[in-house]
Design a protein around this nucleic acid. Sequence first.
DNA 1: GATGAATGAGGCTTCATTCAT
DNA 2: CATGAATGAAGCCTCATTCAT
Lengths: 237, 237, 237, 237
Amino acid sequence: MLSHSPDHRTRTAERRRDAMRRRLVESAMLVFAAKGTETVVIDDVIMVAGVSRGTFYKYFPSTLDLMVAISQELANELMAQVERVVAPIPDPVERVALGLRLFIETARAFPLFAGFIRATGVQATGPAALIYNYLPDHLNEGIAKGRFLDLPLEIHLDLITGTVLLCVLRQLPVPTETAHVRQVVASMLRALGLPAPEARAIADLDPPPLHLPEDSLLVRTQRRLEAGSDDTCRRAR
Amino acid sequence: MLSHSPDHRTRTAERRRDAMRRRLVESAMLVFAAKGTETVVIDDVIMVAGVSRGTFYKYFPSTLDLMVAISQELANELMAQVERVVAPIPDPVERVALGLRLFIETARAFPLFAGFIRATGVQATGPAALIYNYLPDHLNEGIAKGRFLDLPLEIHLDLITGTVLLCVLRQLPVPTETAHVRQVVASMLRALGLPAPEARAIADLDPPPLHLPEDSLLVRTQRRLEAGSDDTCRRAR
Amino acid sequence: MLSHSPDHRTRTAERRRDAMRRRLVESAMLVFAAKGTETVVIDDVIMVAGVSRGTFYKYFPSTLDLMVAISQELANELMAQVERVVAPIPDPVERVALGLRLFIETARAFPLFAGFIRATGVQATGPAALIYNYLPDHLNEGIAKGRFLDLPLEIHLDLITGTVLLCVLRQLPVPTETAHVRQVVASMLRALGLPAPEARAIADLDPPPLHLPEDSLLVRTQRRLEAGSDDTCRRAR
Amino acid sequence: MLSHSPDHRTRTAERRRDAMRRRLVESAMLVFAAKGTETVVIDDVIMVAGVSRGTFYKYFPSTLDLMVAISQELANELMAQVERVVAPIPDPVERVALGLRLFIETARAFPLFAGFIRATGVQATGPAALIYNYLPDHLNEGIAKGRFLDLPLEIHLDLITGTVLLCVLRQLPVPTETAHVRQVVASMLRALGLPAPEARAIADLDPPPLHLPEDSLLVRTQRRLEAGSDDTCRRAR
DNA sequence: GATGAATGAGGCTTCATTCAT
DNA sequence: CATGAATGAAGCCTCATTCAT
């Protein structure tokens, strides 16, 4: 039997497509880390990825699509992470607090992530939008249980989003202390309506250590960043 | 006496220079508000201002410089406004609350301002930086008097800056209700450590109506915006 | 075998790159000859070459680099030509005389060459510099054999370079008679120290006819000049 | 009698016009000296001259006219100088030799002059053209008297012009020895047909020291150059 | 008459995207 | 299929010249 089954062929091709897609997304992250969002993009990305221009366009119709792809990938990884931790927790307040902690912890552990947030800002497409998708249910539950003040959700959401954003930016160029993060989260909980002592107590509950899968975008990219910072930065200005 | 005194000539020339400078700043403001800071291009500004390329460079080396000029002008106008109102108030908490209200009210009354903030983001050069300059004294006084929680200032500042930022963005494309602003301010006061009822009461104190001088950048520009929105937006993407 | 070998592909690509490079060099030559070096502008070159702005920058960072490329190419062609003729000649005086004759003859036969020299002037990068590279050995030998006056080389070189330069300019807009060239060369030989009759005799030795290869820059460009002088000169001032 | 006579008024005005014209021409020379011909012109000239743009255009319709004005002024000064020296000399050969010596000596004494020649090249408008105007009569006389070879004048002229040009360029950035100049002139005389010993003897005749009037362009400019090289070069690049 | 602000054509350079090989 | 040469629109900046005051 000389030829593989068409099915197998298809599957192989698909796997290769995925690998290349990842490679491009990673490379874009690396470029982001090396330079500000402004300045060159495509040239750097394909150079870091080691592929041709044509190949790039095979995978992404435009640079914007690449940005979107990164955002989604990051959002997915983060959601998985957060859900894993908070799902079993009965108290909606703790769920909110731990979710925010995890978001900020990710930015602390992965400057790459913080940099991307900074570059993206508060866009509907960026990972910051995650907050608007993830929190409402928990907030509503907290409100229903009388733990949070019964205000329009957007009040709570804007405060949280804005605060988290600033807190993430604070992680650059060097991360803050854990104490700082706890205090910020406590502040948000007070804003949501919790009494100061309770806010403090819950904000001090540490989430389990981050555990992103080995093949997650952030982990892979961080690794490449540490490994060959030479190659990456060579052309990067 | 047939000829003008050199002094008079000089003064006339100076006045014209100033007029052109203002024209450019106004135009840039219009453009910045309509598009993102990053994407603004000299062509946009000179088209809106109706001047030549060369003229632009006589006054500003780059669009970035224009941006800085606008920021400073806006910051000055805003500070004058705020100081006028809060200076006589003895309670630091009220001073903080009213200051934030005025900031947000300005964004509500002048979509141009909100647009500019959106375009600028949380840059050290943008008017958002105002918060970092203006608040510390009042916050410290509030902390000293036991009204605010005694946390590192940056905790309070990040929360306020982030929240105000988001609240300003909410004013686009259409402003929110006053009630919304009051609630947001109340949330911030709670985060700062005030008990919910007090936070609410102080957040409900309305500031006197905005009163910007007729020749302020915001008033002039808003007027131009209403007048010839055609010209302005033609090229603006 | 359906697909070309990568080797073949590579070679094809390389050949195309070379072709484009040549096209640009030729076009620049046409433009340089038509206008002054100083005034040539990328637009002229790409218009004559019929390529895009971007393409130009792929190959040369500036028009100056093109100029250098042309100079080197011309210098190479000329050297090959001259060496072929003078190498077997035992008498250094004859070698000098014939070399100069060939240089000038080239300018006579190729107005393009004369134009380029005019445009270049006496730059270290221009083909006129050839004289400073090529002559010293022969002059020294002539001096050693007592045929030329024993003066500092630069005296001889400046005189020859200046004179040849002017003589080349004389070839524009229409070439001079051969007799003129012979007389100029004789003058130079007298300046070098030869007695008038001997100078005359040696200056009258005709070099063999020019023979540049078909694919030399001068031949190719001259051909293009004759073919489409319309296109070339359209924008040229 | 309150008003001056119209005649006096006119004369005063004329004198002022002349003064300004000179000021501009000097300034242009200074700028030439400070930078290469390329790069800015008008801005530098008016800055060095301390006048306004408008004033400049009152005096010279374009920059080209300024160049021409400088050339003519220099040519006039040089001619006056040379004529003063050679007029009384009976021997045409000596007249030629001394004239060339004076030309070159001027370039040695005034780097400004050499720089201008370099910038101008062999243009019909430049001072190098002087050679073509001044020499023919003397050469013809020399030929008639059997001192120079009876060749077409252009042969002699091209050789001399080219050689002098190169010799002038040699004076930059630092002047050569007098001996060098003598040898070059001797070479030219040999080329013209003089026997080597006689060429040498005549080339060694030193001209009287240069004596340009105090108010000549070169003297004034050189003085200003030495005086305030700071002001001149401040903006120069 | 002098001034210098305004002009705008003319050059330069970059980079996302296309497409023949 | 992958490639990378070619494209050209979109920015940027300069500077000779004009002209209202």
